[in-house]
Design a protein around this nucleic acid. Structure first.
Length: 695
RNA sequence: GCUGCUGUAGCUCAGUGGUAGAGCGCGUCAUUGGUAAUGACGAGGUCGGCAGUUCAAUCCUGCCCAGCAGCACCA
């Protein structure tokens, strides 16, 4: 007899000791039996066909549950998409087909390139396969036999996975599970897929709404040294409604793409002569300046001192720091004259073309310089001027330094990944004893900076020692512990990112989510015991000894370029007044009010309101258009305040105020408006709303 | 860097082996309008770059550059 506890804590008894999930579901009701796709037994997912242990707590999964949806997506990938590919492209080699939070994908090696034109055909075949409603049965195989099977079908990647599972001891009593689709046929054999499961017991359970969206390249096991496979993405949801909602969401996300808005709002542009380097237009640059000022104001509260250091620095400094050894490929190198031949042209003919530009790296005899890829080595040089004692620490050195990185070409992406980047960078030189309180202060500062910008939800990862690193492991132990302890102390939940640390130290990574749900690393806090030793950042301790300090590398916004890109998407271009490139647009109703409109603009521009650009940013729309059109235009430019001036306002010395969201505040004296703008700008209020009307 | 795709007017895009089109935007003129698009006319393109095939290339082929969707990378 088997006793089974249901989610409502009721207990049912079954005679047979081999009672399965399917039987439990059937005992509850025919509807549930039909909808069931898998079952959770004591928190572990298993097939409906497997027997359930005595005294188990179970939860039956349907398309409406997380596990059920995941199981159906999994079956869709492994039994439907995979089979469709095998039927249409017999020579294709299946690799892996996991689920993701919007559906699933399958990585496959194709002998000839698949094109996106093939997707509709594949999708149609998938629907045909589902219509057969064939049963999918779990089987346990001897690893060698299953490998033999996959060698015969050409799916050598499956063999590799089996071999690895055996090696790692991830087997079920020495066997591996596979799923057979009863009645299917590929090259005369029933289709079998290696899988841990669970799977839906039959294809007619797959009631998902799905569509194949796109193709992409992806490396086998995520390693760029390996074979590149073709990844087929499939979005799949429990209902057509959810699928439509997801597709609509993607379209909406496209509308707030910072590259599109950046052009429409005249913030910046990119062109091929300067890949990855934004040309900032006046309106975009004003955002840049405001953010910089915002950060400066915050740093002041935490006693930072700002510096500025050279852009073009000899490679020697980077050899000392270790960046040369780790990032040489990504440095922009130059010397006094790259076109000057290195070898005497007369020596031999080929030498004519042999310039530094062509021979480039590894030539020590010439003074080779690198555009600085980061600020830390330069900051150490500032620190080293003069003798420092423990009384000088902690020393917090900040810089908005522009760095250049020759990023992999495929990595560039609008403002989110650029070649020339401006970090809100700083290095804290401190003693080991000060380290923890400095990290805690930093975590607080970061939160205080993010919060007013609307980023309340972010995740923090602890990136630990990578394989390629410098320094003793004992130092790494201490550094990783310092970060973990500090976070524990102030209650920041951490997830681990093993091996993702910098070559000189572990780091906390702050990840923010953008409008399309992609996450971007922005803030970072890195504890470094190694560069101070390598580069001689020493201080005299209380005992009079010269010892290396601890260096904490940190950035809050990360790079201003990336952060502005994220902000554009976050706000959909509707910046709060303090950040808005144009804060108010004066709209004269007829030409007769142009002079008054200009007076209004001048009054606002001259108002004693401090902004990063020296005062309020106001424009006048004197186009020979109807007022309605000018309002529409200002709205399209997402300008927070529209100040309509007609004959009446000109006579009364007022402006008729209309907000970006359509709210009409009516005619108000200029002094009233100035008061309101001043409050809004100085407090960096989120956005102009009617609720602020009391101001 | 890798896989697939794209590059035609300021923007969005159509099109053809015989040197190009639309809508919006832009300019001029008329209109002087009270809170989401006034009308007429006009200008604007080495069809990403370099080679090749051809009597002829924006179109076909190759190479390069840039961009897009991912992957890898991200000090």
């Amino acid at each position: 007899m088997v006793r089974i506890t249901l989610p409502d804590n009721s207990v049912r008894e079954f005679e047979a000791t081999t009672t399965t999930g399917a039987e439990v579901a059937a005992s509850i009701g025919a509807g549930l039996a039909k909808a069931a796709v898998a079952i959770e037994v004591n928190g572990v997912a298993q097939d409906l066909s497997e027997p359930i242990a005595d005294n188990a707590k179970v939860n039956i999964a349907t398309a409406k549950t997380e596990l059920g949806l995941d199981t159906l997506r999994h079956t869709l990938a492994a039994q439907v998409l995979a089979l469709a590919v095998k039927e249409l492209f017999p020579a294709a080699k299946l690799a892996i087909g996991p689920t993701i939070d919007t559906g699933c994908y399958y990585d496959i090696e194709f002998p000839t390139a698949l094109s996106s034109d093939d997707l509709p055909k594949l999708e149609e075949r998938m629907r045909d396969i589902i219509k057969t409603g064939r049963a999918v049965v779990r089987e346990l195989w001897e690893p060698e036999q299953l490998i033999t099977h996959f060698e015969a079908t050409g799916d050598s990647y499956k063999s590799l996975i089996i071999a690895e599972a055996v090696e790692k001891g991830q087997t079920i009593g020495g066997k591996v599970s596979a799923y057979r689709q009863i009645g299917s046929s590929v090259a005369g054999k029933e289709f079998i897929d290696l899988c841990r499961g669970p799977h839906a017991p039959s294809l007619d359970k797959i009631t998902l709404a799905f569509t194949l969206t796109n193709l992409a390249g992806a490396y086998w096991k995520g390693d760029s040294q390996n074979q590149q496979l073709t990844r087929i993405y499939c979005v799949a949801f429990a209902s057509q409604k959810e699928l439509d909602a997801y597709l609509t969401m993607r379209e909406e996300a496209e509308k707030r793409d910072h590259r599109k808005l950046g052009r429409e709002l005249e913030l910046f542009h990119l062109q091929e002569e300067a890949p990855g380097q934004p040309f900032w237009h006046p309106k975009g640059w004003s955002i840049f300046l405001e953010l910089e000022a915002y950060i400066r104001q915050n740093l002041r509260r935490y006693n930072y001192r700002e510096v500025n250091t050279p852009k073009l620095v000899s490679k020697g400094l980077y050899e000392q720091s270790g960046h040369w050894q780790n990032y040489r490929e990504d440095l922009f190198l130059t010397c006094d004259d790259v076109m000057q031949p290195i070898v005497e042209p007369a020596a031999h003919e080929k030498a004519q073309a042999t310039t530094l530009g062509s021979m480039a790296k590894g030539i020590d005899s010439l003074g080779i310089y690198s555009l600085k890829p980061m600020n830390c080595p330069c900051h150490v040089q500032v620190f080293r001027q003069g003798t420092k004692s423990y009384r000088d620490l902690p020393l917090r050195m900040s810089e908005f330094g522009m760095c250049m990185r020759n990023e992999a070409h495929g990595a560039l992406h609008g403002l989110l990944r650029v070649t020339s980047l401006t970090q809100d960078d700083a290095h804290i030189f401190c003693t080991p004893e000060q380290m923890e309180s400095e990290i805690i202060a930093l975590c607080n500062l970061i939160d205080e900076v993010y919060e007013p910008l609307g980023f309340k939800d972010y995740s923090v990862k602890l990136a630990t020692r990578p394989e390629k690193r410098v320094g003793d492991d004992s130092l790494w132990d201490a550094a990783e512990k310092a970060l973990a302890d500090a976070c524990a102390k102030i209650g920041i939940p951490l997830t681990l990112a093993p091996g993702d640390g910098a070559f000189y130290g572990p780091k906390l990574e702050y990840h923010l989510k953008d409008a399309i749900g992609r996450t971007w690393q922005c803030g970072t806090v890195q504890v470094d015991f190694n560069l101070p030793i390598r580069m001689g950042a020493l201080y005299t301790n209380e005992a009079g000894e010269r010892v290396p300090c601890v260096m904490i590398h940190r950035a809050i916004l990360g790079t201003l370029e990336r952060f502005i890109g994220i902000l554009i998407e976050q706000y959909e271009g509707k910046f709060p007044t303090w950040l808005a490139p144009v804060q108010a647009m004066v709209i004269p109703i007829t030409d007769a009010q142009n002079d008054y409109a200009e007076q209004v603009r001048q009054t606002l521009m001259d108002a004693p309101i401090t902004t990063a650009t020296g005062g309020l940013r106001v424009e006048v729309d004197t186009a020979s258009e109807r007022m309605q059109k000018k309002i529409l235009f200002a709205q399209q430019k997402k300008i927070p305040y529209m100040l309509v001036v007609g004959k009446k306002e000109a006579e009364d010395g007022t402006v008729a105020i209309r907000l970006r969201d359509g709210t009409d505040l009516g005619a108000k004296p200029l002094a009233w408006l100035l008061d309101r703008l001043k409050t809004e700008v100085l407090t960096r209020a989120d956005t102009p709303t009617t609720s602020a009307q009391a101001a």
